[in-house]
Amino acid sequence: MSTTFPEDVRARLEVDAKEIIGRYPRQRSALLPLLHLVQAEEGYVSAAGIRFCADQLGLTTAEVTAVATFYTMYKRRPTGDYHVGVCTNTLCAVMGGDEIFAALKEHLGVGNDEATEDGRVSVEHIECNAACDFAPVVMVNWEFFDNQTPESARRLVDDLRLGKDVRPTRGPDRLCTWKEASRILAGFGDGRGTEGVQAGGPSLEGLRLARERGWAAPDPAATRTAPAEGDGDEGSAK
């Protein structure tokens, strides 16, 4: 394994790196996106990736390594094309995340943070991903797959291994690969921001109920003219 990128790769990435660095008042702020960028190239942060980041920012490789190893999203060895994260923080674990994680490891014959032999799928248990009202939650390349069961999760990884079309619950129409995802994290869009639903079912529960019962925030006109009164009517909410 070489500790530097081939010249053509380096030249190509330097163009991207310049753009990233240009977004910030001070160049060191570009380090996290640059690490996402080199991960997009190789699927993980290699010694060559570290070297590249260090060269762009005038840092030592030790300084870059210190940062790269602090953050869990940077991988130090290749993941699968589709990296499956199963939430096993308390809420999801209790709701079935533990069973899902166990089922996937057994089904794929891999341990935590390991990839299948074909390199298609890797599995990792992850921490709370801010979708607790959709528990148990599974992420693939950081896209949401809500309300999973062991059966649905096994089907999901089978489909991923077979190369079938897989759609996140709240995400774009097509799942991108791990490397493509890393490139988005580095700040280069794929033009899919308008795809997918605006909100999943649980996100809309409160609004649906409010509409059904005619509940709303107070009428601003009423609060402006007579701040003290306005309790009894239907729209009031104190």
Binding site: Q198, A210, A217
Partner: peptide, 20 residues
């Protein structure tokens, strides 16, 4: 009784809520 007061979520049931 307290009732709900959708403000930030008031437009979430529009399919295009996230567009300008």
């Amino acid at each position: 009784m307290t009732t709900l007061t959708p403000v930030l979520s008031a437009n979430w049931d529009r399919a295009d809520s996230f567009t300008l």
